[in-house]
Write a protein that binds this DNA or RNA. Structure first.
Lengths: 340, 340
DNA sequence: TATATTTATCGAAACGTTTCGATATTTGTC
DNA sequence: GACAAATATCGAAACGTTTCGATAAATATA
């Protein structure tokens, strides 16, 4: 039978209160007593019962993690990696993460996650776009909330993003360092804030390198941002005159599709046209040439969100603001010096 | 402030024991009392505290869901869909699902999921291959366990699989109904039990349709089963003499890769060679021609597993055996009548 | 040494719900 | 109507841990 706090107290020769003080890292315990109790905890392999602990402390020690169903199921495991980062970080903070999905056509009456109804979480992390109705409901419950890769329109929120502008800017810096002067931008799904920021970063990168922004070099009318969208948009690059020597695609999928089209048309990549992507998805290593891209530390996004939510729970405060996670250029084989 | 069971009892004019009996669906409550209490529960929007409930009942009302990290992150969301099915079903049974991953190089000392250490689950579902050490540890704890798409080698277990053999057999039936007599098999990653079963189903389907099994029509030496593996293996089909008029690929990814290669070589698909895949992944609708395949109800796999684990928890019994989930042929445009 | 202050440990109550046996009420039989 | 059996409701204890104020022990000051 698993040990209880009473067994630990008896074997250590102290009260159960003292064992509780040690368990919870309180300072009003002498070092000698603390060590003695910890040794017994280890010896008895004692793990406090979550139920009893939460019951007594009036907390759950759970974090809710909410995202839309399509985000969870999508082929590129962006959000699953964010969740992984959150769950790993939760292990270090002794919280459990309860993952649930909501539909895009969310209605409070029928789709509210049970852990909200039952007050079975101490805080909530929401990854990617979530319905405003859900945001408002969580706010109305005075539960701490952190958003990842999304920021609701109204109110003050805690949001965690990758630094899209800086990443795009780095891509342009890299291409300029390779003497590229005529750099195109390939984008899609421009309603998405990340895509807008990456276009802004492209513009910033040009300006900082003394290059004139030229809208004829920007192709952004794809509805989506998949491999096929990149493939379908790439012909626009070949129609540009004079032809650009490099292209920055708003994500790796579009970069890969673009690369496929160009290769099929007999364009030498990177000899005639260099390509940079964004995200560093797995497939960038499986294409030829391997893709130069901006690496996003997806798991770290999730970990930061967890740290923030834990802080908000423990400090009983609404820590608001935006965290930008730095991203990093990874140079592979899809970029080379511009030919004159 | 959220209502407690005492508020419900007071407003309904009964004892808290009676409210508890109603909450837990016990039969020793009169219909009139039951209705009265349920009306009050609705009116007060009462949700029992999970902590208190589990504490009193000595249960957690949680199910653990374990899979390896690489399975969770992989691009084709097979396991994420199984998890979705499990989580949806859990909602109906009032359980929470705690998702966690383990590394392939699992060691009990450092990688044991916390919810096992803390006894914070009433049962465990394991999806896909998991280390034998983990299986043994869970068994040693006398916690009910269900496996999905995997069966540990030793002991009696409860396992849930899609019916691979029957699916493969259906694919052959379909091709035979289109008058194909010479049907190849394209496989990879043959160490995986599902792949072996699909090859068995191919053989069964041939036999049942009076066709002779011919090993020269079977290409199974790819290490993996990706799009690229299918692409790389497809040239073998063109080297066969006489050429087959159809090919059954062990999964959609290989089927898509094969289709790409054949199209590039000027083979008319399905006019000269029909293709059937397996799994019905999203991408089968994005290729041209759209792929005929075997549909797997991935969410239903997860839901069955949840129902089984709940049954085992509630009956306090080890329900062992294997559940085979039927799969279904979906005819699209990659198959047509064999040309003579 | 006496007194005041600080630190450490303790005992008991609380937390919200379930369980089990006691008790009350209802139903059935003679 | 009396008695037995079945059904319904109840009260109190239990569940394992935290919290808070009381108490004990240690330290500092005069």
């Amino acid at each position: 039978m698993a040990a209880t706090i009473k067994d630990v107290a008896k074997k250590a020769g102290v009260s159960v209160s003292t064992v509780s003080l040690v368990l919870n890292g309180k300072s009003n315990v002498s070092p000698e007593t603390r060590t003695k109790v910890q040794d017994v905890i280890t010896a008895l392999e004692f793990y406090p019962r979550r139920n009893a602990r939460g019951f007594a402390a009036r907390k759950t020690f759970n974090i809710g993690f909410i995202l839309t169903e399509d985000h969870f199921s999508r082929a590129e495991p962006f959000y699953t990696k964010i969740f992984l980062g959150t769950e790993f970080e939760a292990r270090r903070h002794s919280f459990y993460v309860l993952l649930t999905t909501v539909p895009k056509n969310f209605r409070s009456g029928t789709h509210l996650p049970r852990f909200l109804l039952e007050k079975n979480v101490d805080g909530v992390i929401m990854a990617g776009w979530v319905p405003q109705m859900l945001v408002e409901h969580v706010q109305g419950m005075s539960i701490p909330a952190v958003f990842v890769d999304f920021c609701p329109g109204r109110g003050r929120h805690t949001c965690v993003f990758m630094d899209n502008e800086s990443g795009a800017s780095q891509a342009i810096d890299h291409l300029v360092s390779l003497r590229h002067q005529r750099i195109a931008f390939l984008g899609g799904d421009m309603g998405h804030p990340s895509m807008i920021e990456r276009l802004n970063g492209y513009k910033l990168g040009l300006a900082e390198n003394g290059l004139q922004y030229d809208s004829s070099l920007v192709v952004v009318d794809s509805d989506g941002s998949s491999v096929d969208d990149g493939y379908g948009a790439a012909h626009r690059l070949l129609a540009m005159s004079p032809r650009p020597t490099a292209v920055f695609a708003c994500n790796d999928a579009m970069a890969i599709g673009c690369m496929r089209y160009l290769t099929e048309q007999g364009v030498d990549v990177p000899g005639e046209l260099s390509i940079v992507g964004f995200d560093d998805i797995e497939q960038v290593l499986m294409v030829e040439p391997t893709l130069t891209t901006i690496q996003v530390f997806k798991e770290e996004l999730g970990a930061i969100a967890l740290r923030r939510i834990v802080e908000m729970i423990q400090e009983k405060s609404q820590v608001t603001g935006t965290v930008l996670l730095p991203v990093e250029l990874v140079v592979r084989n899809s970029t080379c010096k511009a030919h004159v």
